[in-house]
Structures are given as C-alpha cells and as structure tokens.
Simulated assay, not measured.
Amino acid sequence: MAQTQAGLVDDFGIPVVIINRTVDYAGISQVGSDNIQGGYWAGRYLSSLGHQHIAFIGGLPDSSTHQQREAGFLEGLRSMNQDCLATEIGNYRYEDACQATRRLFSSPTRPDAIFAANDLLALAAMEILRHEFTLKVPSDVSIIGFDDVPMAAWPSNSLSTVRQPVDMMIQKATELLMKQMIQEDMQPEHLILPATPMLRGSTRLPS
C-alpha cells in the first residue's frame, strides 16, 4: 500500500492493519517480521563460512521487504569487512530469478554464495545452478533464502533460510484490527516480530 493510499484510508477512518509490508506513514498499524535483522544474519553467516564472492538476488526493488532485507544483508557483510559481489533482481518471480542467476554465473567472477530475498528466488537459483551450470549446492555455492515456505524443508531442497513468524503476524494483525474496530481512537501500533535462522543443507558447514 503506497503512502498516499494509506493516508486516504486513514482519512476515511477505515480500520486497516498492514501485514508483512511497511509504509512510511505513522497513521496505520503495521505488523511485520524483522527483515533487517534476518538479512544481517544472512550476510554475516555467509561471510563467516569463508565465502569471498557473495551475491544478492532481490525481489521487487520498490517493496519494503526487498529494501529491508537487502539493507540488513549489506550491513551484515560490512560488519565482516566484505562487500556484495553483485546484485540481480528477481521480482519475486521464478523465471526472473532463473534469468538473474544465469546473469550472475555468466560473469567473469562467479559468486560462491547467494542470499535471495525470498525462498522462491533461492529455489530458482538452486535449480539453475544444479541443472544448467552443473554446480553443487553447497560445496560450490551456498544459498540462503527468506520466509521458510514448506518447500524449503523438502529433502531435495534442504534450503537454509530465515523463517518469518507468519502465524504470529496474522494473530497480532487480527488483534490490532479487532481493537481498532472497538476503540475508534486507538493509536496505531507498529510491531516487528523476530525472524529465525533455519540452517539446512544448502549452506556449507562451518570450518
């Protein structure tokens, strides 16, 4: 929801809670996960595994999830005295992420690790690396996603990722919405819930 749309909803007094997105507008309650901290962990963790060429596959550049996860990731790398090798955009679409992966691995300096802005992008990258570039995950390339969708835990994927507390976000958003409906003068609340690293088989073991 754009800032102008958020303001319009607020002007009409419509009870609204934004979930899993944030807008630069204080007048509407918002519930999300800690995208910045999740990205920060991914950057630091990939660097701690010894990777030297770490790339980012982003989602929709204008979305808060992309921006926050990328910002955290870059800060995590900086905390380890590293820079991001390259950034490609996957638009939160499988085929776009496939194309982004092809571009990354057609460059002279190939990544040895990827952080993707969500699990769909990460799974697309994994498929391209295995079946088009005949690279092994994680011995050749480590991959971390974000969200922890059910497919991430499938044995054939075993994707390391950052889990969003989806059930808790829904619960908190529902509670805020109900409170707004009862208390018309309720002050908006902005809740950021912790995200949890989920280590699986798509990242190297620490040396």
Rank of each mutant, 00 (worst) to 15 (best):
I57W: 06
I192D: 09
Q5A: 14
S63R: 03
E88Q: 15
Q52W: 06
Q52R: 14
E88G: 07
A42R: 02
R69M: 09
R44K: 14
M186C: 11
V16I: 07
R110N: 01
A125W: 06
W41D: 07
V16F: 13
P150Y: 03
G39W: 07
A152F: 02
R130T: 00
F146S: 09
N157C: 06
M126E: 00
N157F: 12
E127K: 12
L120I: 11
M178V: 08
L199N: 08
V149H: 04
L104R: 03
P108D: 08
R69V: 06
L60I: 08
L135S: 00
D24E: 15
D119V: 11
V137W: 02
D167N: 10
L129G: 01
P206T: 13
R163T: 06
I57Q: 05
L104A: 04
A152Q: 01
Q37R: 14
H190D: 07
L74C: 05
L74K: 12
S79G: 08
S207R: 14
G145R: 01
L85W: 08
V137F: 08
P155D: 13
D140M: 05
L121S: 15
D96G: 04
D112V: 09
Q180S: 04
P15Y: 04
I57Y: 10
S207Q: 14
S160T: 15
L49K: 12
K172L: 07
Q183A: 10
M1P: 11
R78T: 09
R110M: 01
D34P: 08
D11V: 09
A152L: 00
I143Q: 02
Q171V: 10
Q187R: 10
A195V: 15
P188W: 00
D34M: 03
K136Y: 04
P111E: 05
A97S: 15
M178C: 10
V162W: 06
T87M: 14
M1E: 11
L74N: 10
D185Y: 00
E127I: 00
I182A: 11
V137E: 00
T101I: 02
N118R: 03
R69G: 14
S33A: 15
I19Q: 11
R93N: 07
I28T: 13
S142Q: 06
V162G: 08
D10Q: 15
S160Q: 07
L49I: 13
G76Y: 03
Y92W: 14
D148Q: 12
M126D: 02
L199Q: 11
G72W: 08
T22N: 13
T196W: 04
A122I: 00
L205E: 14
K172M: 11
P188S: 04
R204D: 08
I143F: 04
G27Y: 05
Q180P: 02
E127M: 09
A195W: 07
M1K: 11
L74I: 13
M181K: 05
A42W: 03
A173Q: 03
F73P: 02
V9E: 07
E132M: 02
N35L: 03
G39V: 01
E70Y: 15
R110C: 10
S207N: 14
D112R: 11
L77D: 00
V16A: 08
A122D: 05
N20C: 10
F73A: 09
I182C: 06
L159I: 10
L129I: 01
L193Q: 09
T4V: 14
L199S: 09
T109R: 02
T203I: 13
P138F: 08
E132F: 00
L199E: 09
A173F: 01
I19D: 08
I128H: 01
Q30R: 10
C84T: 10
K179H: 05
S158N: 13
